[in-house]
Protein backbone atom coordinates (compact mmCIF):
# COMPACT_ATOMS: atom_id res chain seq x y z
CA UNK A 1 0.00 0.00 0.00
CA UNK A 2 2.76 2.33 1.02
CA UNK A 3 4.57 1.70 -2.23
CA UNK A 4 1.42 2.43 -4.20
CA UNK A 5 0.82 5.62 -2.27
CA UNK A 6 4.36 6.73 -2.93
CA UNK A 7 4.00 5.97 -6.60
CA UNK A 8 0.77 7.96 -6.65
CA UNK A 9 2.49 10.92 -5.05
CA UNK A 10 5.36 10.67 -7.46
CA UNK A 11 2.99 10.67 -10.40
CA UNK A 12 1.32 13.69 -8.86
CA UNK A 13 4.42 15.79 -9.30
CA UNK A 14 4.85 17.02 -12.88
CA UNK A 15 8.57 16.55 -12.71
CA UNK A 16 8.37 12.94 -11.56
CA UNK A 17 5.66 12.28 -14.09
CA UNK A 18 7.94 13.56 -16.80
CA UNK A 19 10.71 11.22 -15.69
CA UNK A 20 8.52 8.16 -15.29
CA UNK A 21 6.76 8.73 -18.59
CA UNK A 22 10.09 8.96 -20.40
CA UNK A 23 10.78 5.40 -19.35
CA UNK A 24 7.26 4.17 -20.11
CA UNK A 25 6.79 5.61 -23.57
CA UNK A 26 8.96 3.17 -25.56
CA UNK A 27 7.31 0.21 -23.81
CA UNK A 28 3.84 1.49 -24.53
CA UNK A 29 4.73 2.34 -28.09
CA UNK A 30 6.27 -1.00 -29.05
CA UNK A 31 3.78 -3.18 -27.23
CA UNK A 32 0.82 -1.39 -28.75
CA UNK A 33 2.36 -1.57 -32.21
CA UNK A 34 3.04 -5.31 -31.89
CA UNK A 35 -0.43 -6.02 -30.50
CA UNK A 36 -2.15 -4.01 -33.20
CA UNK A 37 -0.15 -5.71 -35.94
CA UNK A 38 -0.80 -9.13 -34.45
CA UNK A 39 -4.50 -8.45 -34.10
CA UNK A 40 -4.67 -7.11 -37.65
CA UNK A 41 -3.08 -10.29 -38.95
CA UNK A 42 -5.36 -12.52 -36.90
CA UNK A 43 -8.40 -10.45 -37.69
CA UNK A 44 -7.87 -9.93 -41.39
CA UNK A 45 -6.21 -13.20 -42.36
CA UNK A 46 -6.81 -15.92 -39.78
CA UNK A 47 -10.37 -15.19 -38.73
CA UNK A 48 -13.00 -16.81 -40.99
CA UNK A 49 -15.55 -14.84 -42.99
CA UNK A 50 -18.93 -14.30 -41.46
CA UNK A 51 -21.60 -16.47 -43.04
CA UNK A 52 -23.99 -13.51 -43.27
CA UNK A 53 -21.79 -10.48 -43.74
CA UNK A 54 -18.87 -11.94 -45.59
CA UNK A 55 -15.70 -9.96 -45.03
CA UNK A 56 -17.35 -6.66 -44.27
CA UNK A 57 -17.73 -7.56 -40.62
CA UNK A 58 -13.96 -7.25 -40.22
CA UNK A 59 -14.37 -3.54 -39.63
CA UNK A 60 -15.33 -4.45 -36.08
CA UNK A 61 -11.63 -4.82 -35.35
CA UNK A 62 -11.41 -1.05 -35.59
CA UNK A 63 -14.96 -0.09 -34.77
CA UNK A 64 -15.53 -1.98 -31.54
CA UNK A 65 -12.22 -1.16 -29.82
CA UNK A 66 -12.70 2.52 -30.74
CA UNK A 67 -16.20 2.53 -29.34
CA UNK A 68 -15.06 0.85 -26.14
CA UNK A 69 -12.21 3.29 -25.77
CA UNK A 70 -14.39 6.31 -26.46
CA UNK A 71 -16.42 5.41 -23.39
CA UNK A 72 -13.48 4.26 -21.31
CA UNK A 73 -11.64 7.52 -21.97
CA UNK A 74 -14.65 9.55 -20.90
CA UNK A 75 -14.60 7.72 -17.59
CA UNK A 76 -10.86 8.32 -17.23
CA UNK A 77 -11.50 11.98 -17.97
CA UNK A 78 -14.22 12.27 -15.36
CA UNK A 79 -12.32 10.34 -12.71
CA UNK A 80 -9.26 12.52 -13.16
CA UNK A 81 -11.53 15.57 -13.08
CA UNK A 82 -12.88 14.45 -9.73
CA UNK A 83 -9.38 13.76 -8.40
CA UNK A 84 -8.32 17.20 -9.56
CA UNK A 85 -11.24 18.91 -7.89
CA UNK A 86 -11.07 16.96 -4.64
CA UNK A 87 -7.33 16.63 -4.07
CA UNK A 88 -6.30 19.63 -6.16
CA UNK A 89 -3.79 17.56 -7.98
CA UNK A 90 -2.16 19.33 -10.89
CA UNK A 91 -1.42 16.17 -12.82
CA UNK A 92 -5.01 14.99 -12.63
CA UNK A 93 -6.11 18.02 -14.61
CA UNK A 94 -3.34 17.37 -17.10
CA UNK A 95 -4.58 13.81 -17.58
CA UNK A 96 -8.12 15.10 -17.86
CA UNK A 97 -7.50 17.63 -20.56
CA UNK A 98 -5.03 15.47 -22.46
CA UNK A 99 -7.60 12.68 -22.63
CA UNK A 100 -10.24 14.84 -24.27
CA UNK A 101 -8.73 14.97 -27.75
CA UNK A 102 -7.86 11.23 -28.00
CA UNK A 103 -11.34 10.48 -26.67
CA UNK A 104 -12.93 12.65 -29.32
CA UNK A 105 -10.80 11.00 -32.02
CA UNK A 106 -11.74 7.49 -30.96
CA UNK A 107 -15.39 8.54 -30.91
CA UNK A 108 -14.96 9.96 -34.39
CA UNK A 109 -13.33 6.73 -35.60
CA UNK A 110 -16.13 4.70 -34.05
CA UNK A 111 -18.71 6.88 -35.80
CA UNK A 112 -17.01 6.77 -39.17
CA UNK A 113 -16.35 3.03 -39.09
CA UNK A 114 -19.88 2.50 -37.82
CA UNK A 115 -21.21 4.40 -40.77
CA UNK A 116 -18.94 2.48 -43.17
CA UNK A 117 -20.15 -0.76 -41.69
CA UNK A 118 -23.73 0.43 -41.97
CA UNK A 119 -23.52 0.82 -45.73
CA UNK A 120 -23.19 -2.90 -46.57
CA UNK A 121 -25.28 -4.00 -43.59
CA UNK A 122 -28.22 -1.65 -43.63
CA UNK A 123 -27.72 -0.16 -47.09
CA UNK A 124 -27.33 3.32 -45.67
CA UNK A 125 -24.46 5.41 -44.38
CA UNK A 126 -26.31 6.49 -41.30
CA UNK A 127 -28.89 4.64 -39.33
CA UNK A 128 -30.37 6.06 -36.13
CA UNK A 129 -29.26 2.96 -34.34
CA UNK A 130 -29.12 3.24 -30.54
CA UNK A 131 -25.40 2.65 -30.22
CA UNK A 132 -24.47 4.98 -33.05
CA UNK A 133 -26.75 7.70 -31.74
CA UNK A 134 -25.39 7.57 -28.23
CA UNK A 135 -21.90 7.57 -29.68
CA UNK A 136 -22.87 10.72 -31.56
CA UNK A 137 -24.08 12.35 -28.36
CA UNK A 138 -20.84 11.29 -26.67
CA UNK A 139 -19.01 13.07 -29.47
CA UNK A 140 -20.95 16.25 -28.64
CA UNK A 141 -19.96 15.89 -24.99
CA UNK A 142 -16.30 15.62 -25.98
CA UNK A 143 -16.62 18.65 -28.24
CA UNK A 144 -18.19 20.58 -25.38
CA UNK A 145 -15.32 19.70 -23.07
CA UNK A 146 -12.67 20.71 -25.55
CA UNK A 147 -14.49 23.91 -26.50
CA UNK A 148 -15.03 24.91 -22.88
CA UNK A 149 -11.42 24.30 -21.90
CA UNK A 150 -10.13 26.32 -24.81
CA UNK A 151 -12.33 29.33 -24.25
CA UNK A 152 -10.71 30.41 -20.99
CA UNK A 153 -7.54 32.48 -20.80
CA UNK A 154 -6.66 31.41 -17.30
CA UNK A 155 -5.78 27.74 -17.08
CA UNK A 156 -6.70 27.51 -13.41
CA UNK A 157 -10.29 28.51 -14.20
CA UNK A 158 -10.44 26.41 -17.35
CA UNK A 159 -9.38 23.29 -15.46
CA UNK A 160 -12.03 23.61 -12.79
CA UNK A 161 -14.81 24.48 -15.21
CA UNK A 162 -13.95 21.60 -17.49
CA UNK A 163 -13.77 19.27 -14.52
CA UNK A 164 -17.29 20.19 -13.44
CA UNK A 165 -18.58 19.65 -16.96
CA UNK A 166 -16.83 16.29 -17.20
CA UNK A 167 -18.39 15.09 -13.97
CA UNK A 168 -21.84 16.31 -14.95
CA UNK A 169 -21.30 14.59 -18.29
CA UNK A 170 -20.28 11.25 -16.84
CA UNK A 171 -23.39 11.14 -14.67
CA UNK A 172 -25.41 11.81 -17.81
CA UNK A 173 -23.67 9.37 -20.12
CA UNK A 174 -25.50 6.26 -18.86
CA UNK A 175 -28.79 8.16 -18.73
CA UNK A 176 -28.29 9.34 -22.31
CA UNK A 177 -27.29 5.85 -23.35
CA UNK A 178 -30.35 4.16 -21.87
CA UNK A 179 -32.74 6.85 -23.02
CA UNK A 180 -31.44 6.52 -26.56
CA UNK A 181 -31.74 2.74 -26.40
CA UNK A 182 -35.27 3.06 -25.14
CA UNK A 183 -36.10 5.61 -27.84
CA UNK A 184 -34.66 3.26 -30.42
CA UNK A 185 -36.85 0.35 -29.43
CA UNK A 186 -39.89 2.59 -29.56
CA UNK A 187 -39.21 4.10 -32.97
CA UNK A 188 -37.21 1.54 -34.87
CA UNK A 189 -38.01 -1.66 -33.13
CA UNK A 190 -37.24 -4.69 -35.20
CA UNK A 191 -36.28 -2.89 -38.41
CA UNK A 192 -32.64 -2.89 -37.41
CA UNK A 193 -31.10 -6.28 -37.05
CA UNK A 194 -27.80 -6.62 -35.36
CA UNK A 195 -25.91 -9.55 -36.73
CA UNK A 196 -23.40 -10.08 -33.94
CA UNK A 197 -25.02 -13.43 -33.48
CA UNK A 198 -25.40 -15.11 -30.13
CA UNK A 199 -21.90 -16.51 -29.89
CA UNK A 200 -18.89 -15.24 -31.70
CA UNK A 201 -16.39 -17.65 -33.17
CA UNK A 202 -13.30 -17.77 -30.96
CA UNK A 203 -11.11 -17.04 -33.96
CA UNK A 204 -13.07 -13.83 -34.44
CA UNK A 205 -13.13 -12.91 -30.77
CA UNK A 206 -9.43 -13.19 -29.94
CA UNK A 207 -8.23 -10.63 -32.48
CA UNK A 208 -10.89 -8.26 -31.19
CA UNK A 209 -9.67 -8.52 -27.62
CA UNK A 210 -6.04 -8.20 -28.63
CA UNK A 211 -6.89 -5.21 -30.77
CA UNK A 212 -8.78 -3.59 -27.91
CA UNK A 213 -5.78 -4.07 -25.66
CA UNK A 214 -3.47 -2.63 -28.30
CA UNK A 215 -5.74 0.38 -28.75
CA UNK A 216 -5.75 0.90 -25.00
CA UNK A 217 -1.98 0.96 -24.91
CA UNK A 218 -1.97 3.32 -27.86
CA UNK A 219 -4.27 5.63 -25.92
CA UNK A 220 -1.84 5.38 -23.02
CA UNK A 221 0.95 6.36 -25.36
CA UNK A 222 -0.77 9.41 -26.82
CA UNK A 223 -1.94 10.42 -23.37
CA UNK A 224 1.63 10.27 -22.06
CA UNK A 225 2.97 12.29 -24.93
CA UNK A 226 0.27 14.90 -24.74
CA UNK A 227 0.63 15.11 -20.98
CA UNK A 228 4.40 15.55 -21.31
CA UNK A 229 3.90 18.45 -23.68
CA UNK A 230 1.29 19.98 -21.43
CA UNK A 231 3.57 19.60 -18.41
CA UNK A 232 6.42 21.30 -20.25
CA UNK A 233 4.18 24.21 -21.20
CA UNK A 234 2.73 24.54 -17.72
CA UNK A 235 6.05 24.29 -15.96
CA UNK A 236 7.98 26.32 -18.52
CA UNK A 237 9.20 28.70 -15.86
CA UNK A 238 10.29 26.12 -13.34
CA UNK A 239 13.95 25.36 -12.89
CA UNK A 240 13.73 21.70 -13.91
CA UNK A 241 12.24 22.52 -17.29
CA UNK A 242 14.78 25.26 -17.81
CA UNK A 243 17.65 22.92 -17.02
CA UNK A 244 16.11 20.34 -19.32
CA UNK A 245 16.19 22.91 -22.11
CA UNK A 246 19.78 23.92 -21.46
CA UNK A 247 20.78 20.25 -21.38
CA UNK A 248 19.21 19.74 -24.78
CA UNK A 249 20.95 22.80 -26.12
CA UNK A 250 24.32 21.56 -25.00
CA UNK A 251 23.91 18.23 -26.70
Amino acid sequence: MNVLLKFYHRLGSPREFYKISSALIPWLGWTSLILILLASYLGLVVAPSDYQQGDSYRIIYVHVPSAWLSMFIYVVLAVSAAIGLIWRMKMAYVIMICSAAPGAWFTMVALITGSLWGKPMWGTWWEWDARLTSELLLMFLYIGIIALYNSFDERRVAEKSTAILAIVGVINVPIIHYSVEWWNTLHQGSTVMRADGPAMDVRMLWPLLIMAFGFNLYYGLTLMQRARNQVLVQEARSSWVQSLVTEREQQ
Binding site: L137, V168, G169, N172
Partner: peptide
Protein backbone atom coordinates in the same frame (compact mmCIF):
# COMPACT_ATOMS: atom_id res chain seq x y z
CA UNK B 1 -22.88 23.02 -27.24
CA UNK B 2 -22.44 22.19 -23.57
CA UNK B 3 -26.01 21.60 -22.54
CA UNK B 4 -28.04 20.52 -25.55
CA UNK B 5 -26.55 16.98 -25.52
CA UNK B 6 -27.46 16.75 -21.84
CA UNK B 7 -31.05 17.64 -22.71
CA UNK B 8 -31.39 14.57 -24.93
CA UNK B 9 -32.96 12.20 -22.36
Amino acid sequence: ILILPLFAP
